[in-house]
Amino acid sequence: MTMSESLLEVKALKVHFPVNVGLFARPTEFVRAVDDVSFTIAPGETVGLVGESGCGKTTLGRAVIRLIEPTGGQILFDGMDLVPLKGAALRAQRRKFQMIFQDPFASLNPRAKVENIIGEALDIHRLVLNATARRQRVESLLQDVGLEAAHAQRYPHEFSGGQRQRIGIARALAVQPKLIVCDEPVSALDVSVQAQIVNLLRDLQQEHGMAYLFVAHDLAVVRHISRRILVMYLGRIVESGEARSVCQSPRHPYTQALISAVPVVDPKLKRRRMVLAGDVPSPIHPPAGCPFHPRCPVAEARCKTEVPALREVESGHWVSCHLAK
């Protein structure tokens, strides 16, 4: 993929949070939430970002659209680096990227009518000329996400979890962004409603052509919506590639474990599960060498000392593991 083709190009992005701030001293330790991460998203593409809690996927998703201050690296959006932008210059860019949040209960202002929740972004970016246009735009957005125009006059608490998530999606759509970061958009929903939202996101993408960065812990959901998948562990990308390739022939032992841990309903398809020992280590003191080695079932001596680089094992399929072939 050449530069000109990508909508978003993230280069060596770092997000470090200080811990143990002393009185006069500089911070002595950092949580390396995102450590040297690079990837691209093409216009209209969906890239899935998978990992367990604490791996840095939410931080990465937020840092990419400057909701969290990056410590280093570049975020090229349409060729323009977002990292040095501040104030008005950054706000001007904001309508190009939006976010959908995990918790449809907490991310909508309980005292605002749906009309104003969606309309606020229109006001901020001056996308409508008058109140009539605003109301029409809000109503058409509600219909786009499968709600009714009449819902504009209601409050968030009158809706179910799935409907609230639709409102969140309409709010993100309002400014016609080129990229939407979806942070665990379905993990708080019931199974039967999850599928509705995933399908809705796919339909909207076909209609409007925006790209998604789809952040989730559920590999099966990510598989369904993404063209490419990034697997994250302790702040780093350990595997990336086409969704089919990553899910059907995972090369990194961590991805293999993640895939084998996905529960399978049909008893005929049951296979031997690969259960990882131990917990995810602290990102303040990540293990030396390969960060996964303490839990890795196939680790060798060099895994404890040498950090594996991301290398292309197959066209478009990258893995950071010494042993992957």
Binding site: A195, R202, V221, H224
Partner: peptide, 17 residues
Amino acid sequence: MKSVPTLAADAERLTTI
């Protein structure tokens, strides 16, 4: 059961309720 996403299937619409 149909609405549970699986790894086996290719990216296609999920069956919903």
